[in-house]
Nucleic acid binder design. Structure first.
Length: 906
RNA sequence: GGGCGGUUAGCUCAGCGGUUAGAGCGUCCGGUUUACACCCGGAAGGUCGCAGGUUCAAAUCCUGCACUGCCCACCA
């Protein structure tokens, strides 16, 4: 046990040392054959492109707290780490990096590009995992996975082929969200609706063979170039005579029909709508119903295509202006009105997406969603906080097919091969010939899968599926999924669907959705917006343990987390407090050794396991109280963690350690530690060490580094490896010692009362003064038995114990129903402050008593409220009345005194 | 257009049916108590957004309103 210990906690060196040691020793390697109930959790795989941001830090902190807690409780715990290949994100990063080097990725070609990405991944893709090691996360690094590794790719192909064979994956031309910047289709979830104020352009379409014209309104005038009809409601009398006639499409002079369709809203605008089947979801459906041609007027990169005639080549927004200008010139623009509408933007690049009919791969979701709804309904998967259940159900019940193909190069290549005759062969391995016509002229589909496709398989693909592995049998279904609520649909819902479909089991038994971490302005932290904070910088500044503790304390469900330096600072102070409590033990080792106690003795398991109730009676009050509090706190922390109430668990240990262990217990037993009576001193040391060591274990899941370091500095059994493998304090209810808690808090009240008077009198804290305590025999005897501690902690020279009523004369008094404490004062003190205070207190008490009396006088209350509530109220009322009488007498006395002195005249 | 949160001490937030509503920071007063000034002791500070209702009992449950944040949505 080292004697030299720095005065303040300096986390950096300690953290680095333990982080490395834990990995080197493979301390957290899970053994599928180990004993104990299983706790398994897979990480929400971070993107390889990123570095660790505060959101990850929160995820990982909560996961790690629970993993360490379970491990310490004897669970066979697995925390499986890994990363996501992050299709679009990674491709975007690489394209940019290459561009910076003057390389056009398209010219590089697909194969060379992929090679570059892999190379980059090897060099830079490990940032996050390195950072996770630094953070000391208790993952099993031997089981690290990557969504694009050969093993996981195999799972992806297996799933794709099976779904295709069942008809749940299909290919076809449908309306998709097209991002002209990323140049790929994206899913509905990846488009973010943004409210914008724009215009509604009203355009005249002349009806051929008449003098009439119809007016259509549109938010995207350039799409008129792709119109293949205009539509009216079949029962709209205004236009009934026009149905079946043709209109001349302005600018292009194309003749298109006027059709009747129920999807037209007669109330909106003129009741006539232009139909652009290739660029609007409603029009697409209408186009199918009426057999209209689809004219795609766009190119992949958002310019106008050949189909746009004279507008070919124009950028889409330039084309809009030109179209409007030309319509205006031809007098075909009736009016422009203001209009707010929601525009879809690309989640990745924020550019406006274009609805576009395109041939893509889709997954049928309804059949997959049904069982996924059922398992949550039936509680096979518990979602916390509960309000997310409703959100989940809502989305799942209205789920639409998922566009899974992406026009990218980085990702899982779709396992489909096209032959020259247009047949498609879907296979697990590259086929030699077309399954339909036998052609050997095959080309693999160029598209890759949406990143979330492989993420959806994560809980079982990482454990070895599709093989029937030991890991899968032992660790699947996983115990819990912890992630931010913003990927409930993207990821959580899809994992549930895929897990059920392919393993017949839920992927996890519980989902905990935590809040987002926002900055001081309440904005979502984001690197692109420059509003992010670097958690590693904060860790360096305040210590990882302080950061972890802050996040845990703030992880209360419901609200978002707003991080501030002040808050982290207060938990850095907490870490320092723990450090200094340890320091107290270490710097007093000479006193400790003087008692003849050995370190071996302290490390003995029977001392550690000492169950307080066995010792009760033999122990001094302070120790009985402390052990009881320890048990109660352990009980509460365990219960809180069981229910994922991290903030409550953290609060509880914080208050226990600082407010009870340090502020009261250590101060209380200090003299005993140096007592002449060695047996007494030894017992005090033993208990102090035992409580401190237990407190470290209690704290360990929250503050792994600090506790590991201090635990190793304490005497430990030979071969004891890590606090992380030690037992978590249990807090059995049989350890609670209510009598000791009651007595200790009474003594504390007396001490606080004395301190209060001292502060009021502005006494020099070192100056010891005499006081008088009036109380019943029971309390007097309690105080008498603990007189040394009371005198010392209240800085009293003596405490006279008296019975009966306290005479009203002289000194400052603090009273409760149980006792009166009086301290004499010199003549210089001004009593007016005290009088004001007492008056205020008297009013408050009078009001309180009045309301309690009223309650108790209420017959309905007495008959309906539970007995213990009524009795509790009665006894409280009695106490208040006692306090009130004492206070009234004191006040009268003081007022008289002031009045006589003439000081109250003013 | 639907839905979900939030509104509690100067600030950031806990508490979510039962006796005098809590924490951290900040404020004020007093401290070189040999573990800790990242500290110690004491104190001040709140008609729990507003209005109704349910209940013996409401910060806590219900309804409405007002701000405020977010999610979902194919009305041109």
């Amino acid at each position: 046990m080292p004697r030299e210990i720095s005065k303040a906690y300096e986390p950096q060196a300690i953290e680095q040392r333990w982080a490395r040691a834990w990995v080197d020793e493979k301390l957290f390697r899970a053994d599928a054959r180990a004993q104990g109930p299983v706790f398994s959790i897979v990480i929400p795989p971070p993107n390889i492109t990123g570095s660790l941001h505060i959101g990850h830090m929160l995820d990982h902190t909560l996961i790690d707290i629970l993993t360490r807690w379970h491990r310490m409780r004897g669970f066979n715990a697995l925390y499986l780490p890994g990363t996501d290949h992050a299709g679009i994100s990674t491709q975007r990063v690489l394209v940019r990096l290459l561009a910076e080097q003057g390389i056009d990725y398209r010219k590089l070609g697909r194969e060379a590009f992929e090679k570059r990405v892999w190379q980059w991944k090897e060099e830079s893709g490990g940032t996050i995992t390195r950072q996770m090691v630094q953070l000391g996360e208790s993952c099993d690094w031997t089981r690290e996975r990557f969504t694009l590794s050969p093993e996981l790719s195999r799972a992806v192909r297996e799933v794709f082929v099976r779904l295709y064979e069942e008809g749940l994956i299909y290919r076809g031309k449908y309306m998709v969200n097209w991002c002209p910047v990323c140049q790929t289709a994206i899913s509905d979830l990846e488009t973010v609706h943004e409210e914008r104020t724009g215009h509604l352009w009203h355009i005249r379409y002349p009806v051929i063979g008449t003098n009439e014209q119809v007016v259509v309104a549109t938010t995207r005038p350039e799409t008129m170039l792709g119109d293949t009809a205009v539509a009216v409601h079949p029962e709209d009398e205004r236009y009934a005579h026009l149905v079946g006639k043709m209109v001349r499409l302005p600018l292009l002079a194309r003749e298109i029909p006027i059709i009747a369709d129920r999807y037209v809203d007669r109330e909106f605008g003129t009741g006539v709508v232009k139909v652009t089947p290739a660029h609007d979801p409603n029009d697409f459906e209408a186009g199918r119903r009426h057999n209209l041609p689809q004219i795609d007027i766009l190119t992949d990169d958002g310019h106008l295509s050949k189909a746009a005639g004279p507008y070919e080549g124009l950028e889409r927004f330039a084309a809009r202006e030109k179209v409007v200008e030309d319509l205006k010139a031809q007098g075909l623009l009736e009016k422009i009105t203001n209009h707010t509408y929601a525009v879809g933007t690309c989640d990745r690049c924020k550019s406006v997406i274009e609805p576009r009919a395109s041939t893509q791969w889709f997954m049928k979701m309804k059949p997959l969603a049904e069982p996924a709804i059922a398992v949550v309904e039936h509680g096979e998967i518990e979602i916390t906080p509960e309000n997310w259940r409703a959100v989940y159900f809502e989305w799942m019940r209205n789920i639409r097919d998922w566009c899974i193909s992406r026009q990218l190069w980085w990702g899982h290549r779709i396992p489909a091969w096209h032959c020259e005759n247009g047949h498609v062969t879907v296979a697990r391995e590259t086929p030699a010939k077309c399954a339909e016509c036998g052609s050997t002229n095959l080309a693999q589909d160029p598209d890759v899968l949406d990143t979330w496709f492989s993420s959806a398989l994560w809980p079982f693909s990482t454990l070895g599926w599709p093989d029937d592995t030991e890991d899968l049998r032992v660790y699947y279904p996983t115990s819990l999924m912890i992630t931010a609520y913003d990927i409930l649909f993207f990821w959580v819902a899809r994992m549930i669907m895929m897990g059920l479909k392919f393993t017949g089991q839920v992927p996890f038994r519980r989902v905990h959705l935590h809040s987002l971490v926002l900055n001081a302005e309440g904005q979502k932290m984001s690197k692109s917006k420059g509003t992010g904070v670097d958690p590693l910088e904060l860790n360096r500044q305040f210590g990882t343990d302080a950061m972890r503790f802050t996040l845990a304390v703030m992880a209360a469900p419901g609200t978002n987390i707003i991080l501030s330096d002040e808050r982290i600072l207060s938990y850095r102070a907490f870490a320092n407090k723990i450090w200094n409590a340890a320091r107290f033990l270490f710097v007093n080792l000479d006193k400790f050794e003087a008692t003849g106690i050995t370190l071996e003795e302290l490390a003995a398991p029977e001392v550690r396991a000492a169950s307080p109730h066995r010792l009760r009676g033999a122990l001094p009050l302070a120790d009985r109280w402390m052990f009881s509090r320890l048990a109660r706190v352990a009980h509460k922390v365990n219960a809180a963690l069981e229910e994922l109430r991290f903030h409550e668990a953290a609060h509880t240990v914080y208050h226990f350690f600082w407010g009870e262990f340090c502020d009261w217990y250590i101060e209380w037993v200090k003299p005993t530690l140096a007592a002449e009576n060695h047996e007494e001193a030894r017992a005090a040391w033993r208990n102090l060490f035992a409580v401190f060591e237990a407190a470290l274990r209690l704290l360990h899941p929250f503050m792994p580094f600090l506790t590991e370091e201090l635990w190793h500095r304490l005497p430990q059994r030979a071969g004891a490896k890590s606090i992380a493998l030690d037992r978590y304090p249990e807090g059995r209810e049989t350890w609670f010692d209510e009598e000791a808690e009651r007595q200790a808090s009474l003594l504390q009240e007396i001490i606080v009362a004395a301190r209060n008077i001292r502060a009021e009198l502005k006494l020099d804290p070192r100056k010891k003064v005499a006081a008088e305590l009036t109380a019943d025999a029971h309390i007097r005897s309690l105080v008498h038995d603990n007189l040394d501690a009371v005198l010392r902690l209240a800085a009293l020279s003596e405490l006279k114990l008296t019975s009966g009523h306290l005479s009203p004369k002289g000194g400052l008094v603090r009273s409760t129903a149980q006792f009166d404490l009086r301290m004499a004062y010199g003549q210089a003190e001004d009593l007016r402050g005290e009088v004001i205070k007492l008056r205020k207190e008297k009013d408050r008490l009078a009001k309180d008593i009045e309301s309690k009396k009223q309650r108790l006088a209420d017959e309905t209350f007495r008959s309906r409220a539970p007995e213990n509530i009524v009795r509790g109220l009665e006894s409280t009322l009695h106490e208040r009345e006692v306090e009130y009488r004492k206070l009234r007498d004191r006040l009268a006395h003081l007022e008289k005194q002031l009045g006589e002195g003439g000081a109250a005249a003013s």
